[in-house]
Computed example of a mutant assay.
Amino acid sequence: MVHIRPYRADDLDGVIDIFLRAVREVAARDYDRHQIDAWAQVDREAWSVRRMSRPTWVATIGSSLAGFADLESDGHLDMMFVHPAHQGRGVASALLAQVEASAREQGIARLHAEVSITARPFFGRRGFRVIAEQVVCVRGQRFDNFRMEKVLGPTQTPN
């Protein structure tokens, strides 16, 4: 069972581990070794500030951190990563549901994200559409990814 809760400062090392392992073990099927080496780098202090500067949630399964996601005030979903051991268990779906619920509460009508080749199918199945294919440079490496968006409808209430 996936449980979603707000991020706490003591989650920092766990979310960094999730990010690094997701990039190195999952995204590596779609990007080469040089791209992965460029992507899988973390400035711990910057991450600490960033995680506390915006709503961030963590997903847990039992006592293990399984994933995390955040939301910026303009509807930008900057990060959403799932630990490789918890792929395919509903973690990303639960995190995205939390992000969407929070966006609606804040009056945000549109979510948008820069989505990796790896994550594109997931986002597509959840109602995001590709706005543009793009190439971004990170630490001298070029990455193909996708700008995607989802317009949020009103929350449906049961009859």
Rank of each mutant, 00 (worst) to 15 (best):
Q87Y: 02
H83D: 15
H86T: 00
M80T: 06
S48W: 03
R44V: 09
Q106V: 03
P55I: 03
A101D: 14
A66W: 01
L65E: 12
R54P: 02
W47Y: 11
L95N: 00
Q106C: 13
L65I: 11
V99S: 05
A94P: 06
D78N: 13
R44L: 07
A92Q: 05
R50F: 09
Q87V: 13
V91P: 07
G88P: 04
A101S: 15
M79T: 06
T60L: 10
D78L: 04
W47Q: 06
V91S: 05
A59T: 07
V42W: 10
D70T: 06
D43N: 15
L77H: 00
A97R: 14
L95E: 00
A92L: 05
A101C: 08
P84H: 12
W39S: 03
V91R: 03
W47E: 04
M80R: 03
V42D: 12
S48P: 00
R44T: 04
Q106L: 15
H86Q: 02
G62E: 13
G88D: 08
Q98W: 09
D43S: 15
H76G: 01
R51N: 07
S53P: 12
F68G: 01
A92G: 15
T56K: 00
R51D: 01
E45F: 05
V99I: 06
V82R: 01
S102H: 14
A85I: 00
R50K: 12
M80F: 00
G88L: 10
L71C: 01
P84I: 05
A46T: 12
V82A: 05
P84W: 08
V42I: 15
A40I: 00
W57L: 05
E105F: 05
S64M: 13
P55T: 07
R54N: 11
A92S: 13
V58N: 01
A69T: 08
Q106E: 14
Q41R: 13
A94T: 06
I61C: 12
D43G: 11
E72M: 13
G75H: 09
Q41G: 08
R104I: 10
V49I: 10
E105V: 07
M52K: 09
A66D: 08
S64E: 15
Q98E: 15
V82S: 01
W39E: 03
A101E: 15
R50A: 10
A40Q: 02
G88M: 11
R54Y: 12
A66Q: 05
G75R: 06
Q98P: 04
S73D: 15
S93I: 07
E100K: 07
G67S: 11
R54F: 07
V49Y: 06
V82T: 14
E45V: 13
S102N: 04
S64N: 14
D43H: 14
G62D: 10
M52G: 00
W47D: 02
E45H: 11
F81R: 00
L65H: 13
S48F: 03
Q87G: 01
E72L: 11
G107T: 02
F68R: 04
T60H: 02
V82C: 10
M79N: 12
T60P: 04
S53M: 14
Q41Y: 02
V58E: 01
A103F: 02
L77F: 03
Q106R: 14
S102C: 07
A66E: 02
P55G: 04
R44C: 01
R51A: 10
G62F: 10
